[in-house]
Amino acid sequence: MSGLPTEHSTASTASPATADHPPPQKPDPTLESNNAPQRGLSASRTAAAAELSSLKIRLRGALRQFPDFPSPGILFEDILPIFANPALHEDLLHALELHVSQAYEKPDVVVGLDARGFLFGPSLALRLDAAFVPVRKKGKLPGPCETAGFKKEYGDDFFQMQADAVKPGQKVLVVDDIIATGGSAAAAGSLVKKLGGSLLGYMFILELDFLKGRDKLDAPVYTLLSTQEQ
Rank of each mutant, 00 (worst) to 15 (best):
S2T: 12
T13E: 13
D20M: 07
D20I: 00
H21M: 00
D28N: 15
P29H: 02
L31S: 08
S33F: 08
S33L: 13
P37D: 03
R39M: 08
L41F: 12
S42F: 02
S44Q: 14
A49R: 15
E51Y: 06
L52M: 15
I57K: 13
F66Q: 12
P67V: 05
P67S: 07
D68I: 03
F69W: 13
I74G: 10
E77H: 12
I82M: 10
F83W: 04
H94P: 11
A95L: 06
L96R: 02
E97M: 08
E97F: 15
L98C: 13
A103F: 05
V111I: 02
D114F: 02
G121E: 04
S123E: 01
A130Q: 00
P134G: 01
R136T: 00
K137T: 01
K138A: 06
G139W: 05
P142H: 01
G143Q: 06
E146V: 12
T147D: 03
T147P: 05
A148Y: 00
G149A: 13
K151V: 04
K151M: 07
K152E: 05
Y154N: 05
Y154G: 06
Q160S: 01
M161E: 02
D164N: 09
P168W: 00
G169Q: 05
K171D: 01
D177Q: 07
I178F: 12
I178V: 15
T181K: 03
G183P: 07
A185Y: 06
A185N: 03
A185E: 05
A188E: 04
L195S: 14
G197C: 11
S198D: 15
L200A: 10
G201H: 09
Y202D: 04
I205C: 12
E207Q: 14
D209N: 03
L211S: 12
D215Q: 15
K216Y: 09
P220A: 15
P220N: 14
Y222I: 07
T223C: 15
L224S: 12
